[in-house]
């Protein structure tokens, strides 16, 4: 039996090495399945929880143009969450179980959404930096080995680029505005810069999942590689805006052709992951409230659907 599993494992790894996609009904190692359920659901939860900090500003958007854009972005995030939940469900876990894991804190979501959005400029910084970081990760994932995850990512990436552009446009408008507006934009960058860098996860040396994930082509680049890519892209954009990235060690390195940057406060990262960020409780409470208070609607819809089926049988 053990030899048998080993043989299946070898065939599986050969398929991955050969660049084949893995589909839900194919044989896969249990750990591959579990890793995907964890990662895809975490990604789905991030989309869903990610609606909350932005939803905060829909009713206070400064113009109709900004409001329709923000509404469309938040609606996209709901859609992205749904694509991803569906992908996770192909691995044999139910939607209710996935929600339950989120609501009980068993499943995580991106720590970035545990920071508050205290000014309108944060809608700019979130779109520019948070979506920018997400896009770098997601573009890589369009080539991930598990078919349903990769397909969800292709759809998401197509839709996501407007999110980042609308964010940058908000920053651009503010930095071209009054002194106070410029200051708002700078303050927002100051607060979102470091948490955005943390979105790529712990450094490679401390990342427990990276090695296996690379072997299974779940990830194709390491956390540190993606983080460097983000910094190299974003630093010139900050300069274009006339804003200062809050890192005195950030400097172009002519030799490596990359930006050098200062030490990241990983203690803060782990604090937020463990539940002690500024908004962890508020976010989960909002989700649980929506789920609990919507229960009667879901039940009524099921009852109505069943009644329609019965009526059509009688007729």
């Amino acid at each position: 039996m053990k030899d048998n599993i080993q043989a299946l494992n070898d065939i599986f790894q050969a398929r991955i090495d050969n660049g084949e996609s893995i589909e839900p009904k194919d044989w896969m190692p249990e750990k591959y399945r579990k890793t995907h359920i964890r990662q895809i659901s975490q990604h789905a939860h991030s989309e869903i929880v990610g609606m909350l900090p932005e939803g905060n500003w829909i009713s206070r958007a400064p113009s109709l143009r900004r409001k329709v854009a923000l509404l469309a972005k938040v609606q996209d995030e709901a859609g992205h969450g749904l694509y991803l939940y569906s992908a996770a469900e192909t691995l044999g876990i139910s939607r209710d179980e996935l929600f339950d894991q989120l609501h009980t804190g068993k499943a995580k979501y991106s720590s970035i959404f545990n920071y508050p959005t205290v000014s309108w400029a944060d809608m700019g910084a979130v779109g520019w930096l948070v979506d920018g970081a997400a896009i770098i990760n997601q573009v890589m994932l369009t080539r991930t080995s598990f078919g349903p995850y990769a397909r969800a990512m292709v759809k998401i990436c197509k839709e996501e680029s407007f999110h980042q552009r609308q964010g940058f446009e908000i920053m651009l408008t503010l930095t071209n505005g009054t002194e106070v507006q410029k200051q708002m934009a700078q303050d927002s960058l100051n607060r979102w810069w470091w948490p955005s860098l943390m979105m790529f996860g712990p450094p490679d040396a401390e990342s427990t999942h990276t090695e296996q994930s690379m072997k299974w082509k779940i990830k194709r680049k390491t956390n540190d590689e993606l983080r460097q890519q983000f910094i190299d892209i974003t630093a010139p954009q900050a300069e274009f805006l006339g804003l200062t990235i809050p890192d005195p060690d950030l400097k172009w390195n002519e030799e490596t052709k990359h930006y050098d940057f200062g030490a990241i406060d990983w203690d803060e990262f782990w604090q937020v992951v463990k539940g002690f960020g500024p908004c962890n409780k508020e976010r989960i409470d909002a989700r649980v409230k929506a789920w609990d208070e919507g229960a009667w609607v879901r039940d009524a819809a099921v009852a109505y659907g069943e009644k329609k089926i019965q009526k059509s049988k009688v007729a």
Binding site: L82, Y83, S86, E89, R95, R151, A152, K155, R298, A301, V302, Y304, G305, K308, I309
Partner: peptide
Amino acid sequence: GSLHASDPEM
């Protein structure tokens, strides 16, 4: 793709 709904109409 796929989605959940209470009946075909939804």
